[in-house]
Nucleic acid binder design. Structure first.
Lengths: 219, 219
DNA sequence: CAGTGTATTAAAATATAATATATTTTAAGC
DNA sequence: GCTTAAAATATATTATATTTTAATACACTG
């Protein structure tokens, strides 16, 4: 049994997470020797990791000036949202057309997990916010998993996580509104009603944008 | 004036080009010390570059097994094409809505360059195929440049070049068909007729797919 | 004998550290 | 505010150690 994660991929995940969850804040200068120390990796491994993240857009590389956590702006957030909607709806359309029993069953499972966690949260159990996010991701990916395009799934994942970084700017979340939206998306997906599912999905993501852009003061 | 390209970004461009233009063929194992020699860069710089390219999808990294030029398949080509159409049409719609005189003028310029080169090529001057490609890129990007989304432009660029790699599998090109299609796209774009422009653009890209998938034998 | 599994060895990827150089940033002085 | 000197930092190479994979030889088994 070889669970030999390389140092490189471990540190990549760690830093990516720290950016998404705000431990490394937007526009922060990522000083190489400082990070090399705090993450306990060598400079070369760290640079490999930062280069990967800069290709994805979580880190911005400025030649001869080093690396920075990619800055945020309302404008960028709107772009990310718009692209997420474009890709997620397109993939949803394909998924509703192609999805077989296997896909449908996995979707039902993913929704059940999400809904269960959401109920826990509404009862005041805040300890599991990070797992709620995992289940939210699981649900949204399950929706499109039958789209039959690895490239599309991969691009969607990128945009979901860029969106998530903005979401994490606020500690509060939307509560019961999001729960209802999820249910509507789920129901219309099972009915293979694409127009309705698309409408509800668009609305859901846009409401997320609205909530955050009202609650967070971009400068 | 600072044109001080770093070794890293220079080698990145070189290797990316070599992949797109087929000098480094699909599925080739990218042995580190061999590449380090042939491109005359150190291993660390090379690894940084390969990590960037693997994030973008031109290179595939397999943990502990090294790097490979990303493999090709008809299925992948169809996915890429479909995504390119989705993004390029979406961006075109925004661009036709927002484009001002500045944008329109640049588009006219880009089309003129492309058309001039196309005419040269039809007269038998094959020496400038690579510059024709640059002008084709220039035209297609100009079309969408007023879409007002840096994220969209960047994603579109990625997909254009992934598409281009497939295009480069054949030495021959489509000749006068493509020339006519470009004209139709250009004309309808200037008239701000989105439905027509979209139709012509979709057709243009799909014809590219057809031409290549008929001429190249995927295994 | 063919095929299969298992050591052994060779090759290659991964990771760190040490070093040199070039560029940017900071600080000091005019 | 401008120029220059010093410090900090990024970039790049090289050398080395470790780990993993790939290749080879060798025995075992049906």
């Amino acid at each position: 049994m070889t669970h030999s994660n390389t140092v490189g991929s471990a540190i990549y995940q760690k830093i990516k997470d720290d950016i998404i969850y705000g431990k490394l804040q937007p526009s922060t200068k990522l000083k190489l020797d400082k990070l090399s120390n705090s993450y306990s990796v060598s400079m070369s491994t760290l640079r490999e990791c930062l280069n990967r993240l800069s290709s994805e857009g979580f880190v911005s590389a400025e030649e001869q000036r080093g690396f920075f956590v990619t800055s945020i702006s309302l404008n960028d957030f709107e772009e990310i949202t718009s692209l997420r909607i474009l890709l997620e709806c397109h993939a949803l359309k394909l998924s509703l057309k192609n999805g077989d029993t296997e896909w449908e069953g996995n979707l039902v499972g993913a929704y059940h997990k999400l809904h269960t966690k959401e109920t826990e949260m509404q009862n005041g159990d805040v300890s599991t916010k990070k797992s709620l996010i995992r289940y939210d991701w699981g649900f949204h990916q399950s929706l499109i998993l039958a789209c039959n395009s690895a490239n599309l799934i991969s691009l969607h994942s990128l945009l979901y996580y860029k969106f998530l970084r903005y979401q994490m700017l606020l500690t509060s979340s939307r509560g019961s509104d999001a729960v209802n939206e999820h249910k509507k998306i789920f129901d219309s997906a099972l009915e293979r009603d694409f127009p309705k599912a698309e409408k509800e999905l668009k609305n859901h993501v846009k409401m997320g944008l609205n909530f955050i852009s009202k609650g967070y003061k971009f400068n």
